[in-house]
Simulated assay, not measured.
Amino acid sequence: MQAFDQIQELWQKHEVEVKVSADEMLQQVKKEVNGLKLKSALNILGMLTSFIAIAALWVFYHFESWTTHVGISITLIAIGVYTLILYRDHRLISKSDYTVHPNEYLNNLKTYQLNRYKLYNSLYWFYTVALSLGIIFYFVEILAHFNFIQQVIAIGLTALWIIFCSTILRKAVIKREKERIALLIEKFERISGQISTRN
């Protein structure tokens, strides 16, 4: 019985390493990379759609107060800058062919990871403050057309939406994206290691 316990203990300590070739690994990450690119492109498309919708509202609707024009300007600048940052990051993960240059793509992916960290932390708060400021200026004229209850509902829903996006939603997105990018980086490091041992 003691021999059985020793064998069982050795078995539990023994780790089996699954060998996956670099080609198989590249096939596995192909889907993940394409998903990352698609998500990035959809983020940019959503921001552009928001920019166009707000700009169209500004052009086609007559606003009387200067505060509304300031609010819309601040909002459009914030969305425009954030969109350019998203586009820069999208180009970073789309410019090199990961099947031909996995090391270069790995470096780009690490830079992308760092940029996303900055985007969701310090830059996100500048974006949120700018949008909030834009909405406050915009509301000066718009809320004058509402009765008191409608004003409270509009301000309350806007504040709740900003708080929800800045806390629960932001944390969930950061966690999911952090795990996804870390997994891709790990896979590309293993691919690079296997390719360098071949040479």
Rank of each mutant, 00 (worst) to 15 (best):
I79N: 02
L84H: 04
W66M: 15
M1Q: 12
W11F: 15
L45F: 14
L84Y: 05
R176K: 14
L84F: 07
I168S: 04
Q194T: 02
I142M: 11
A55D: 05
E177L: 10
N107F: 07
N108M: 01
L48F: 12
G134Y: 00
S50Y: 04
R198L: 12
I153Y: 04
E179T: 13
Q151A: 06
C165H: 03
I44Q: 04
S96H: 08
Q8A: 15
F148V: 07
K175D: 12
S96I: 11
S192D: 13
I185V: 11
V16S: 05
G46Y: 12
L36E: 09
D89Q: 11
A55F: 14
A55L: 15
K31V: 13
K13V: 04
V140L: 07
A3H: 05
K37G: 08
I7L: 15
H69Q: 11
H14L: 08
T99H: 05
A41V: 02
L119Q: 10
E186M: 13
N199Q: 11
K30Y: 12
R180F: 14
R91D: 04
V152I: 13
L183C: 10
D5W: 03
T83A: 04
I142P: 05
E24V: 02
K30S: 15
K39T: 14
T68F: 00
T49A: 14
I7Q: 09
L86R: 04
L48D: 12
P102T: 02
I162W: 01
I52F: 08
D89A: 05
L38K: 14
D5Q: 06
I195A: 08
M25T: 06
E189Y: 10
Y117A: 14
V152T: 13
Y112G: 01
E9Y: 11
S21H: 09
V59P: 03
S65A: 15
G46Q: 13
V140Q: 10
S96F: 09
Y87S: 01
E17N: 11
T111D: 03
L36N: 05
E64Q: 15
N121W: 09
K95I: 09
E24W: 01
V59E: 12
I185R: 00
S196E: 11
K95V: 07
I185M: 01
V29S: 04
N34I: 03
Q113W: 07
E141W: 08
S96N: 11
N107W: 10
T67C: 09
S96V: 14
V18D: 03
T158L: 09
Y120T: 02
K171G: 00
P102E: 02
Y124E: 07
Y124R: 07
G156M: 00
L184S: 01
S21D: 09
N103K: 12
I52V: 12
A22M: 03
E17G: 06
V59W: 15
E179V: 09
T49H: 11
W11A: 13
